Computed example of a mutant assay.
Amino acid sequence: MKEKFENALGKMWDKLDGWFNAFVVSLPNIILAILVFAIAALISKYIKKIAYRLASRTNLQESMKQLISQIVAILVIIVGLFFVLGILNLGKALNTILAGAGVAGLAVGLALQGALANTYSGIILSYVKQIKFGDWIETNSYEGEVVDIDLRVVTIKQVDNNMVYIPNKLVVENPIKNFSTTAQSRVILECGVGYDSDLEKVRNLVTSTIAKNFEAVENKTDVLFLYREFGDSSINFETRFWINSTSALEVAKAKTEAMIKIKSVFDENNIDIPFPIRTLNIPKPIDIANK
Rank of each mutant, 00 (worst) to 15 (best):
F179M: 03
Y120S: 08
I77L: 14
E257K: 15
G114L: 06
E238V: 13
E238I: 10
S245T: 02
A93H: 07
V172C: 02
V79D: 01
Y127L: 15
N162I: 03
I166C: 03
D198S: 01
I74A: 08
G102D: 00
Q130T: 06
P167M: 05
L98C: 00
F275W: 08
E173M: 03
L67W: 01
I77H: 08
P175Q: 06
G109R: 04
S121D: 09
E250L: 06
Q113E: 12
N281P: 04
A55L: 10
L280E: 15
I68D: 02
F214N: 00
S69R: 05
S208Y: 06
N118I: 05
Y52T: 03
L54A: 14
F241E: 03
P28C: 09
T209G: 08
I74W: 07
G102K: 03
N95M: 04
Q61F: 04
V147R: 11
L94R: 05
K15P: 02
V36S: 08
S26H: 05
I156M: 03
G80R: 05
E229W: 01
N204A: 08
F225W: 04
M1P: 08
R203L: 11
E62H: 09
V251M: 09
G134C: 05
I271R: 01
N236R: 11
G10A: 11
N204P: 00
F23C: 12
A183K: 14
K4T: 12
C191I: 04
E250C: 06
E218F: 03
K284S: 12
L151D: 02
V146E: 07
R240Q: 14
V76E: 00
K177N: 10
Y120Q: 02
F37R: 07
I124G: 01
E145F: 07
K284Q: 13
F133R: 07
K261D: 13
T155S: 14
K15D: 05
I277W: 03
L54S: 10
I78L: 14
T207E: 02
F20E: 03
G91S: 11
I71H: 09
K4W: 07
Y165H: 14
N204G: 05
T221N: 15
V171K: 07
I77N: 12
A73L: 00
S245G: 02
L106Q: 06
Q158A: 11
R53T: 07
D272R: 12
V202N: 07
V128E: 11
D222Y: 07
C191D: 14
T182G: 04
S126M: 10
D287R: 02
F83M: 11
I30V: 15
I188V: 15
V193S: 09
R240H: 06
E268A: 04
E3D: 14
E215K: 14
D17R: 09
G134P: 05
A93T: 09
N7Q: 14
N290K: 15
R228W: 01
N21D: 12
K65Y: 01
A183M: 11
L81K: 00
I71E: 08
I260M: 09
V251L: 10
L199R: 07
D287Y: 01
Q66E: 14
S234T: 08
N118P: 01
A248H: 13
V79L: 13
L9G: 08
L151T: 03
Y165K: 15
S234K: 15
D14S: 10
I39Y: 04
I188F: 08
N21W: 12
F83C: 11
S69F: 04
R57W: 12
Q61K: 00
F225S: 09
Q66P: 00
V187T: 07
A248Q: 12
G86K: 12
K157F: 04
